[in-house]
Write a protein that binds this DNA or RNA. Structure first.
Lengths: 350, 350
DNA sequence: TCACAAGATTGGAACGTTACAGCTTTTGGC
DNA sequence: GCCAAAAGCTGTAACGTTCCAATCTTGTGA
């Protein structure tokens, strides 16, 4: 008998528990899962054995034989973006409340890593996928559809799965109308290329429509990648500088999300433009820091926790077959929160 | 033959691919894993079959037979806290780069959910666990040790696993010394109860020592739970108000982390105390928003990405048996970043 | 032409569970 | 006491892989 020197102690299995408690593995399994049909005395005996051995059921084996996992895949655009971070947290909590474990994958807005992430999720046989951002990539779509896994798009859009989101276009109108009513005639729309998706597009449309309804010209579209750290936002950004100095006299910017809005505000602060005196800024999301007295960002508040709750409920219902049929769309309210970053435009006495 | 009406189409298995390509499952397995010993022609044939069927290896089955997963558990204090969000993102990226998938669990600083989360991770047979926060709970420790899974504490502390962190005590001294050199004599130390851990304690100690070395009295310790949203920070908080008005004439606060520092700044803004004229504030972490011109928080910068990288490298090396032996501690540099929230104390002409 | 090595391919035994049918034992009504 | 029904318990066959020893092909040099 040669004993391996670094003998790896193995995790106790259901069989170890069974023999330790003097019952069959079936009985142990029933105890572990709290099924009826086990006498109180054996139940106790098994419980003791479990504690003594430190037995933990192997979820892998369980899921293999049941052919379904209790893992939810969550696709996030950027975990470090406060909006996603808040959503991720809510999603994780609601998932746990319904008995699911969340497995995140961060895409950085790149469809390559989105695809790779989704592929990993599928290989792990996730029970469902929650998209908190979706690039629109066709390969991702094909992979998910091929594997027939329930999908929900939360606060982002696609036409091949349930959608839970705010009415982005309405949000776009609300924010823009607020600007128009404050006397602004020329509005720019700012978005971050990495996060451009269907939601972003709907916001832009809403903005455009509102301007149009007011008989004003279409918004200028600006695409800007602020550096990952606000501290590195600098005054060298020509296209951005033109927003402030350009010939079209833009006096207000509607940013497609708060991170962009705050980065823009930072830019203004650095190059010496005043907000809101020189330029009004509206964001979207209402991330926690937008409410800081020093930031005071006017923005469209998304009910994050409700979005997360409805999203999880949606996939979970599909997974548990409580809901069948074609994709549904659920829209929740979006609210304008007025703060210091927007102000009535003082009209030139010209 | 009665065909179930809603016949669930099952995922193709390795056997389906095998018969489709006219080879044995072993060969398919070898192709999938890129092992040598398969002729180029069969390799191609198998590849085609895989594509046609949309076959994806079942990671569960693989991991069951290999008795090891490629999942890393990550325990996070609060995903919505920007410091953790940044760390989570880095950790996820470095894990993916080494071939691991991250599975997060959020503890909210409660040891109950920490325990539950770790229990879930262990049941999923994670290959290792990265703690980004640790409550110190003994049951968690016991569970992890019992299952003999490699563990690393990143930016938090414990004596039963590898540790990668900044020298918290040194950070505490650096920040405090900065205050002392600016003429402050009475310093308070502020921490958030949910995030109080070994790191927090070391920072406090560093603060205390620096004051002591300067011949000054010990810092007042304040424990404060700011509301989840900054927007709800209000002026009703008596204990906090006493920091500003109390008889001990506190002129500076060292917050154990940036979120607390920013919440305190917000509180000051709301009740009408000026930062830094009335009170200087130092934070810890250097979260992105600390660098905003409008926030300008003096703080101790943690090299987040390096922490994450070293942490992942640490667990991965343990998992892959490249490192054995007793726990190691790796300390990385912490840097004072001076911004607008601290200023030289104008001494009373009394 | 043959033996033999190297290369290519295969089948079966795990891995740790759950599901389910079947087997005991107990219970209770008459 | 007896019999049926209920309750308690067990054994076996999956689940979809990997691992490994065994077998089947080739190709090569003598």
């Amino acid at each position: 008998m040669i004993e391996s020197p670094s003998a790896e102690r193995r995790h106790p299995t259901i069989l170890d528990v069974a023999s330790h408690a003097g019952v069959s593995k079936s009985t142990v399994s029933n105890v572990v899962r709290g099924l009826p049909g086990v006498s109180e005395s054996t139940r106790r005996r098994v419980r003791t054995a479990i504690d003594q051995l430190g037995y933990r059921p192997n979820v892998l084996a369980r899921q293999l034989v049941q052919r379904r996992t209790s893992i939810l895949g969550v696709v996030v655009g950027d975990l470090a973006n406060p909006f996603f971070a808040e959503m991720a947290k809510s999603v994780e909590r609601h998932a746990a409340a319904r008995g699911y474990t969340a497995m995140f994958c961060n895409t950085e807005g790149e469809s390559e890593s989105e695809l790779a992430g989704v592929e990993t999720l599928l290989q792990h046989r996730v029970a469902g996928i929650v998209f908190l951002a979706f690039s629109g990539d066709a390969r991702t779509k094909q992979a998910v559809l091929q594997h027939q896994v329930p999908v929900v798009f939360v606060s982002c859009g696609a036409d091949w799965g349930d959608v839970v989101s705010v009415d982005d276009s309405r949000g776009g109108r609300l924010g823009t109308t607020h600007l128009v009513e404050s006397g602004h005639r020329r509005v720019a729309y700012l978005s971050i290329p990495e996060l451009e998706d269907q939601s972003d597009h709907a916001r832009w449309e809403g903005c455009r429509e509102a301007l149009n309804d007011a008989g004003l010209g279409a918004p200028t579209h600006i695409s800007w990648s602020p550096p990952a750290e606000y501290a590195r936002v600098d005054g060298l950004d020509r296209p951005l500088l033109e927003v402030f100095t350009g010939p079209d006299r833009t006096t207000a910017v509607f940013a497609s999300n708060d991170v962009a809005a705050i980065a823009l505000q930072e830019f203004a602060d650095r190059v010496g433009y005043r907000v809101p005196e020189d330029i009004s800024i509206v964001g979207f999301d209402d991330v926690p820091m937008a409410g800081l007295a020093r930031i005071g960002l006017t923005t469209l508040a998304q009910p994050r926790d409700e979005l997360a709750r409805l999203g999880i409920a949606g996939v979970a219902d599909r997974i548990e077959r409580k809901v069948k049929g074609p994709p549904r769309t659920t829209l929740v309210k979006v609210n304008l929160v007025t703060r210091r970053s927007t102000a009535r435009l003082e009209t030139d006495p010209s």
